[in-house]
Amino acid sequence: MVNYKPSARSSVIAAVAAAAILLVIFIFPNMIVKDLSEKVSAKTRSTIEALYAKDWDMANTDMEFVANTLAENEHTLMLFMDHRLVDELIAAARGCLHLVRKHDSAQVFVELEFIINRIEYLAETEKFMWGNLL
């Protein structure tokens, strides 16, 4: 069949749709991850302070918040982030919660630093920086 009508319009519509989708993808993941990163890293740091003060109840409350927040946002994070990173982060938070409940301060600091490092890394991967670009 001979096509008498080239579909230039469909290309323009597709280009506009692609630009709109990209715009949404550029804005929302960054907002979600930034917000989550701030919440989780603040609470994780607060857990560290509580552990230094030997306040196990406070550490437990903070760590529960961290573990629950990450678990609640698992599916959202997996839309934009490498699934292995998200799994590692959630597993580390759960592990920390167990250690805090067992009052094991030796191992828990290593895990808490791991959580801070990973959640800040996740947020940084969405930032437009020379380091990420190059």
Partner: peptide, 8 residues
Amino acid sequence: SDIATPLL
């Protein structure tokens, strides 16, 4: 081929 990588 890698389900750990987001489709995006």
